[in-house]
Amino acid sequence: MSTTQSERLRELLEPLVGSRELDLEEITVTPAGKRRVLRVVVDSDAGVLLDTCAELSREISDKLDAADAMGEAEYVLEVTSPGADRPLTEHRHFRRSVGRLVKFQLTPEGKERAGAGELTARIQTVDEDGMDVEVPGVKGRKPTGRRLAFGEVAKARVEIEFNRKDKGAPGAGGTEETEEA
């Protein structure tokens, strides 16, 4: 997809997505046989419900048809929320991941401070400059806290936790009342 088409689609759809208090995370157009697939990824601090994606899909479809933004060729529209494995690239992504375990690939400056190129830690707080993280203890040792500046992070991705003991924590996927099956 050309930058021009991407920018046109973003300009067209961002106000519509924003009116629902959602963030337009990504727009991609990929060929699929004789058709194309237009994938619109949206997110919010509270997450995105399936019904919201369905309603937004109808609104986006109407807007695209009215503006003839996709041309005459057939396309399939997919409106979705980001998957759990999406990279954390924006400040809001880190803020939404407070309480979650994240694998960080560090920049040379971050490697120097951490003594390694990779760090797995739980995000505790996020501010404009970086985040406070808790590095899990190994072999019975207590977890340790540290400060991680955004400039020290080359890549970051949430780690999926299936057996987290602290299920009542934010982002842990459960509440304190949840019983183990």
Rank of each mutant, 00 (worst) to 15 (best):
M1R: 04
T3Q: 13
T4I: 12
Q5H: 11
R8F: 10
E11C: 10
L12K: 02
L12Q: 12
L13P: 04
L13N: 10
G18L: 09
R20G: 06
L22E: 08
D23T: 14
D23L: 14
D23G: 00
E25Q: 14
E26C: 02
E26V: 07
E26R: 14
E26Q: 14
T28L: 05
T28P: 07
V29Q: 08
V29I: 12
A32S: 14
G33Q: 02
K34R: 14
R36E: 14
R36N: 14
L38H: 04
V41K: 08
V41S: 06
V41D: 07
A46R: 15
G47F: 12
G47E: 08
L50I: 15
C53S: 09
C53D: 08
A54T: 13
A54E: 10
S57A: 14
S57G: 03
S57Y: 11
I60C: 06
S61C: 04
D62V: 07
L64G: 02
A66M: 06
A67K: 10
A73N: 11
E74V: 00
Y75E: 09
Y75R: 09
Y75K: 09
V76C: 03
L77Q: 12
V79W: 01
P82A: 02
P82R: 05
G83D: 07
D85I: 03
R86Y: 01
F94E: 00
R95P: 03
R96K: 12
R100D: 00
F104A: 01
T107Y: 06
P108M: 08
P108N: 07
E109N: 13
E112H: 12
R113V: 03
R113K: 15
A114G: 01
G115P: 00
A116C: 06
G117A: 15
G117M: 01
E118L: 13
L119E: 00
L119N: 05
T120H: 06
A121H: 03
I123H: 03
T125V: 05
T125L: 01
D127L: 03
D129Y: 07
M131V: 09
D132T: 14
D132Y: 01
V133T: 01
V135I: 15
P136L: 04
P136H: 04
P136V: 01
V138C: 06
K139S: 13
R141T: 13
P143G: 09
G145Q: 08
R146M: 15
F150C: 10
F150E: 09
F150N: 00
G151L: 00
E152R: 05
A154M: 11
A154N: 10
A154V: 04
K155R: 14
A156D: 05
R157Y: 00
E159K: 09
I160K: 04
R164S: 01
G168C: 09
A169W: 05
G171P: 00
G173N: 06
G174Y: 00
E179S: 12
A181C: 04
